[in-house]
Each structure stands twice: as structure tokens, then as C-alpha cells.
């Protein structure tokens, strides 16, 4: 599979809340589905966030910016799958629940942790406008832009996580290596 860094680029969905859990990302009643694609219509169906409507707010999004402890709750991998089925392959958050974060990298997706004050400045500077973000894994920079305004923010992930992302996930990594 050809995975390049520009896989992590596109329109940003801002979710202004802490502790968004896996039940909100994909409700448990859909766990009987037998394909990842089948989860697509249900992403964030139960998100408790005033003003958010999954039917209108998800279209065309490629990344999420949110606050602390994203992905807490159960260990279900259905949460990153539901994101991926909707074309969202990058989540930028103040922090992540451990298993969710590992599941993201296992699926070849990017989970970027930024300090709370940087997240705050992103919400303050961009959340009101149509924003795009591009992650450059080589330089370790996130490029944000909206209405002619741009900002570059450094980020880091571990060597192993970088290798998983480059390979397209743990499955591709393991299939090539072992």
C-alpha cells in the first residue's frame, strides 16, 4: 500500500470537549458489523456536544482537533475504523486514552498530542473558520491554514509509531518485516 505523508491533509473538524469516549465515537450497538466500511454512517452519532450534527458537520473532513483524553472508554478498534471509514485519518488532541492512541497507529493513522495551550490557541485562532491541516512527518510540522492565515506547529511521535504510519499500520509493518 502506498502511504505518503499527504495522506494526512485536509479539512479540520473542531470538537471542543474533553473526554470524548469510544461510545460517542461509535456506539456499542454497531459492534456486530462485520466490515469497517459498515460503520461509516454512525460516526459520532451519540456525541454530546451542543451544536454538533454528524449529518452535516462530517462531510469532507480529514482531521479532528480536540481536547484532552480523546478515545477514552472501551478498547474497541471500531473507533478508529469509524473515523477511517469517513476519511478522517488524523486526530490532534491535548491527550489520548492509551489504547485508542495505539489503535490509531496500529491502523496506520496519526494521533498527534499537543500541549493544552497549543490546542487552546488552535481553537482560538482557527475553530471559527474553514481550516485545513497538513502533517509533514519528515519535518515534524503541522501546517494549519484558514482564510490566508497560516501557522506551523511542531509535533513529535515515537520512531515506532512513525514506522507504523509509514508502513500503513501494524499489519503492513508486520507483513513486511516478519
Amino acid at each position: 500500500m502506498d502511504q505518503t505523508t499527504n495522506h494526512f491533509s485536509g479539512s479540520v473538524l473542531f470538537l471542543d470537549r474533553n473526554d470524548i469516549n469510544t461510545d460517542e465515537i461509535i456506539p456499542a450497538k454497531y459492534l456486530t458489523e462485520i466490515s469497517k466500511e459498515a460503520l461509516k454512517p454512525y460516526l459520532l452519532e451519540d456525541l454530546d456536544l451542543p451544536g454538533f450534527d454528524p449529518d452535516t458537520d462530517l462531510a469532507g473532513r480529514r482531521a479532528i482537533v480536540t481536547r484532552a483524553n480523546f478515545g477514552c472508554g472501551s478498547s474497541r478498534e471500531h473507533a478508529p475504523w469509524a473515523l477511517e471509514a469517513n476519511g478522517i485519518r488524523m486526530v490532534i488532541a491535548g491527550s489520548f486514552a492509551r489504547i485508542f492512541r495505539q489503535n490509531m497507529f496500529n491502523c496506520g493513522m496519526l494521533a498527534v498530542e499537543l500541549p493544552a495551550d497549543v490546542i487552546e490557541s488552535l481553537f482560538a485562532g482557527f475553530s471559527g473558520s474553514e481550516t485545513t491541516v497538513t502533517a509533514d512527518l519528515e519535518s515534524g510540522l503541522l501546517h494549519f491554514s484558514a482564510n490566508g492565515k497560516t501557522e506551523e506547529i511542531p509535533f513529535s511521535i515515537s520512531e515506532f509509531d512513525r514506522a507504523l504510519v509509514k508502513a500503513g499500520g501494524w499489519l503492513e509493518f508486520a507483513d513486511n518485516k516478519y
Binding site: S75, R76, E77, I99, N103, N106, C107, G169, W170, L171, A174, D175, Y178
Partner: peptide, 16 residues
């Protein structure tokens, strides 16, 4: 394990 780990186990006989 989760699904990706299971897939790798089935395919390669390893797990991390």
C-alpha cells in the same frame, strides 16, 4: 487482543 493484533497473529504468527 484487538482486531489488528488478531489479523497480524493470523497472518504472521506474531504479536507485539
Amino acid at each position: 487482543v484487538g482486531t489488528t493484533d488478531l489479523e497480524v497473529g493470523i497472518l504472521k504468527g506474531v504479536c507485539a
